[in-house]
Nucleic acid binder design. Structure first.
Lengths: 214, 214
DNA sequence: CTCCTTGTTATACGATCGTATAACAAGGTG
DNA sequence: CACCTTGTTATACGATCGTATAACAAGGAG
C-alpha cells in the first residue's frame, strides 16, 4: 500500500532536497550526533530518530551506514574514547621532560576540560550500562581501560617505579581518578576540580614513595 | 468500545483470581520487583510491564500505589540505599571497639557481598543516569553521599583525625572506594576484591598518618 | 445473606521505538 | 542530453512504551 506516495506526487508535493556526502563524512556526522544526543538528553533520549534529526538526515539513513543503532553506539564509544585518550596524550606532551610532571599531567587531565564536561557523564554512563549486555561494548571497555593502565604504567616506570609494583599502583590510581571524576560529574558542589587534582597528586606521591601493597 | 469485555463474559471466560494485600506489602513487592528488574535486565529492560510481571500483578496496579514509574524508581533508589547503608553499619558493629578496625570495616565492606554483587551495578548506573534529569533522584543522591561521608568523618574523628582534615579525607576515601567498586563491577578480571580492600586500607593509613592535602 | 467499598484486572489509547522497503533524485558516466 | 547507479527520503509495520479507565471480584460491614 504505497498509495500515499502516489497521492503526494499527484498533489504536487515535493521531497526535501539533499546532497550526497562522502561515506566517511556521513558516518562521522552520525557518530557525533549520537554523542551529542547522549550528552544532552541521556540514554533515554537517544534513539534512531533523535540521532538522525540531530545529524540532519532522515531516520532510514542510519541503517545505510551502520548495522543498527547498537553498532552506532559502539562506534561512538570508540570515537569518544579515542578523543579522551588524545587529550591525555596532549597533556603529557605539553608537560615537558620531567617524568613526575608528565605523570601528574596525565592523571590530572581528567579534572580539566574537556574531560570534566558534565555532559560527558551521560555518555559514559550509557556505555557502562551496556557493558554487561553488549559483547562489543564490553570488548571496547576492556581495551580502553587496559590502554589507560598501560600508559600509566609506562609513566610510573619512567619515574623509577619497579616493574612489579607498577601494575597494582596503576589500578589504584585509575580507581581514585575514576571515582573523583564520577563524583565531580554527578555533583560538582561537594568539591572542586583543583581539590580533586590535589588528592590525586597526593595519592600518586604516596605510591611513588612506597609502592608496595599488602 | 468495551465490547470485548462483554464478549469475554458471554464466552464464559473468567478473570485471573487475586488476593487483596495490605498496602505496605504491595508497595514493598513492587519496589523489590523494580530492583530485581534493574539488576537482571538493566535500565533498558525495566518497564511498567516487566516490573509488574515480576511482582506478579497486573500492569495497571503500579499507578494505584505510585504516581508513575519514575516515582517507583526513586523509591527503589531509597530502598537500595537504605539496604546498603545498613550493611555498612552492620560491618562496623561487627568490627569491635578499635576505631581503626571499625573504619577499615566500613571502607572495605564495599568489596564484599552483598555490595560486590555485580547485579547491583545495573541498579546503580540506572540511578546515576537519572541524577541529571530527575530532581527527586538528584536529591536522594545528594543525601546518600552526604550520609556516607558523614559516617566516614565520624569514624575518622574517632581515629584521632583533626576536624579540619576529616572532610577532604572523607571525599578522597569515598572516591577511591567508589572507583574500585565501579571497576570491580564492570570487569572483575583485572583485580580481586581482596586487592581492592588492600588498596583502600593503604590509602586510609596514609591519610591517617598525614591527613593534609595541598 | 446482601450490599458496598475498593483493590485488582483487563483492555484501550496515543506515542514512540527499531527496522524494512519502495519511491525518488543527485550527480557522475556515456 | 539521456541514462544509471545509489545515496537519501518518506512511509509502513509490528512491537512496546506509560498511562487511563471501565469491568470485575474480594472481603468486610450491616
Amino acid at each position: 500500500m504505497q498509495l500515499l506516495l502516489c497521492v503526494d506526487q499527484m498533489l504536487n508535493q515535493t521531497r526535501a532536497s539533499f546532497t550526497r556526502e562522502p561515506a566517511d563524512m556521513r558516518r562521522q556526522a552520525l557518530i557525533e550526533a549520537a554523542a551529542a544526543c547522549l550528552a544532552e538528553r541521556g540514554v533515554a533520549g537517544t534513539s534512531v530518530r533523535t540521532i538522525c534529526a540531530r545529524a540532519g538526515v532522515s531516520p532510514g539513513l542510519l541503517r545505510h551506514y551502520f548495522a543498527g543503532v547498537d553498532a552506532l553506539i559502539a562506534e561512538t564509544y570508540r570515537e569518544v574514547t579515542r578523543h579522551v585518550s588524545e587529550t591525555f596524550e596532549a597533556a603529557v606532551a605539553a608537560a615537558g621532560e620531567s617524568p613526575r610532571a608528565r605523570l601528574i599531567a596525565y592523571v590530572t587531565a581528567s579534572f580539566r576540560p574537556p574531560i570534566t564536561d558534565p555532559s560527558l557523564l551521560a555518555t559514559w554512563l550509557a556505555f557502562w550500562s551496556l557493558v554487561k549486555t553488549d559483547a562489543d561494548i564490553a570488548l571496547i571497555h576492556g581495551e580502553t581501560y587496559r590502554a589507560y593502565r598501560d600508559d600509566l604504567e609506562a609513566l610510573l616506570a619512567a619515574c623509577g617505579m619497579p616493574q612489579a609494583s607498577a601494575g597494582p599502583v596503576a589500578i589504584a590510581l585509575t580507581a581514585l581518578v575514576d571515582g573523583l571524576w564520577l563524583e565531580l560529574s554527578l555533583d560538582p558542589t561537594t568539591f572542586t576540580p583543583d581539590q580533586a587534582s590535589a588528592m590525586a597528586v597526593r595519592w600518586l606521591d604516596t605510591l611513588l614513595e612506597r609502592p608496595a601493597f599488602g
